[in-house]
Design a protein around this nucleic acid. Structure first.
Length: 135
DNA sequence: CTTCTAACA
DNA sequence: TGTTAGTA
């Protein structure tokens, strides 16, 4: 269950998610409007995305590139409910934790989470990770 | 960063 | 229908 918590922890602001997914802020908000993702919010009403949210966005991106529309994607992906609630509940403490994490720590965590946990999908994500490694 | 409205192809 | 520009 520890893994699930980590995956649902809201960690990333939208700017980071933009780089990770190569989506614009508009697109990300658009997908949220259509309930494809339900990111947590900070006290200042800013989005905080979990690993699950990022994975979801990458799937959405891939599906849309294949010509699948929002309605189709909704049917393909499991409805957002349980995870989002947990992510929302965790938002407060996650916000604190995010600030406590140093950049290298966050990078390490992200790398481990995306590469170790996803043998099959790692290749798709690796390209996006370059944004995170460089700097 | 957020939200909203309107506009494009 | 998905996405974007301009705005406050």
């Amino acid at each position: 269950m520890g893994d699930e918590i980590r995956r649902n922890m809201a960690l990333f602001p939208i700017g980071i998610v933009m780089k990770l997914t190569d989506l614009t802020a508009r697109q990300i908000r658009y997908y949220e409007q259509h309930e494809l993702i339900v990111p947590a919010r900070t006290a200042g009403n800013q989005r905080l995305f979990s690993f699950n949210d990022v994975e979801r966005l990458l799937e959405i991106k891939a599906l849309i590139e294949k010509g699948v529309n929002i309605a189709g994607i909704k049917q393909v992906m499991n409805p957002v409910s349980k995870e989002s609630e947990e992510a929302t509940v965790l938002s407060e403490q996650s916000e604190v934790k995010r600030r406590e994490l140093s950049e290298p720590q966050l990078h390490r965590l992200l790398k481990r989470e995306l590469l170790e946990k996803r043998p099959g999908k790692a290749s798709m994500i690796q390209g996006q990770l370059s944004h995170f490694y460089k700097r």
